[in-house]
Write a protein that binds this DNA or RNA. Structure first.
Lengths: 216, 216
DNA sequence: GACTTACGCTACTCAGGAGTATCGTAAGTA
DNA sequence: TACTTACGATACTCCTGAGTAGCGTAAGTC
């Protein structure tokens, strides 16, 4: 193989935009399906065990078609990761008046589907991370960071609201990681779906407990 | 392949004990080296990327020798996991008088080497978990559970000592997962070694903060 | 309708890794 | 010393999965 395209999307199989073309155009409407299925497999098996044969089978698209779009498996997964989109923008999340309600709103947000699908994708991506530094970087900046950032913002919002003492600003960075960390750990170790009760317990017994030292 | 040995160690290549034997005995002194190297590779690359060729190369033991001892790759990894031994027994951990000191003692304990080696092994095992339900079960009961258990015990000890209010007993199970969860998450997302400062920050800003609602 | 291009299908090549087989030799035991 | 068994080395087989190639056909464009 030879991919001489440092630091950018591969140009292989990504035509359909430059110049006017004649003949059958690329069926870009398939892309969504393919990327979604890739994420499903990623969530179910982890990067190493994702095979393009299976993606092909699952989507009804020929393997050759997949390779017309994305030069390598890594490229496909990369595209899938990028396609997940950012978590809900905090500015768009209505201020529900209390930190607790705000946090629960994020938990219940349909970003990436259910919380468990979200976690499964994270887990599948974590294994991907070992295979490619490039992939790791994208996952970090596109998925993990923004997700933690949501919590960070909510915590700051609560501070601004005066709900929690300004003394805690310094601990916000660590606290923002608590929910992602705990839920991921739960999934990895128990290998059962993580129930909503667990999220609530983490919020009440850890986050809020740590932030309300004057009692509730 | 055919391994018809449900629910037990494979008998393949595990002689050396039954009956009296003549001739050269198994060199069991190699086992430790092999298992340790397996853990190293596991920590570095994750289960999928561990190859027995590499274990062989690394240890100077022939691949055939490895297969004389362990029937399959999974079996070898399984043995490696079992060989890590339990985390420090709480009963043996000196009561340092304060929860904070007790927790730090666990962080600094040389179990499995440095904290970062410990985390790397956990991470490599997490990817293993997806490949084999059996492996997953062993990791859970031999490694993860005992590790969380240590923290659970320390928290209870603090309660018994009257250091923290008995009101918190119900939240101990969740709290016990905080340190493993946070440090694993950190390693997975940052992919840099986790510094001691981070552990301290987790202890102070999360665990102790959640447990000392009357302020310090 | 003529032409162009993407698609699905099938059949490849190629590399790596699990597991096996064989053999000469080293290291023990009686 | 004679015998037994494990070891290291090497060369396999087999399978899976990434990536390629060529073809007939469908779906568009001019």
């Amino acid at each position: 193989m030879l991919v001489n395209n440092p630091g950018g999307m591969s140009s292989v199989g990504r035509p359909g935009s430059r110049g006017q073309r004649t003949g059958r155009p690329y069926d870009h409407s398939s892309d969504g399906l393919i990327l979604a299925s890739t994420l499903d497999l990623l969530a179910g098996r982890g990067y190493e065990k994702v095979t393009l044969d299976e993606v092909s089978l699952l989507t009804g698209r020929a393997k050759s078609t997949l390779y017309r779009r994305w030069a390598t498996k890594e490229e496909l997964v990369l595209a899938a990761v990028r396609s997940v989109g950012r978590p809900p923008e905090v500015d768009l999340l209505p201020d529900l008046g209390s930190l607790r309600e705000d946090l629960l709103a994020v938990i219940d947000s349909p970003w990436l589907g259910s919380p468990n699908r979200r976690l499964a994708i994270f887990a599948g991506l974590a294994s991907a991370t070992r295979s490619s530094e490039r992939l790791a970087a994208v996952v970090r900046t596109e998925v993990t960071e923004p997700y933690v950032e949501v919590y960070r913002r909510l915590l700051h919002r609560a501070t601004d609201r005066g709900e929690i003492s300004a003394n805690f600003v310094t601990s916000i960075p660590v606290l923002a990681e608590v929910i992602p960390a705990m839920s991921t750990h739960r999934l990895n170790t128990s290998h059962e779906p993580v129930h909503r009760d667990f999220f609530v317990s983490v919020i009440d017994n850890i986050l809020l407990a740590a932030l309300h030292p004057t009692g509730d």
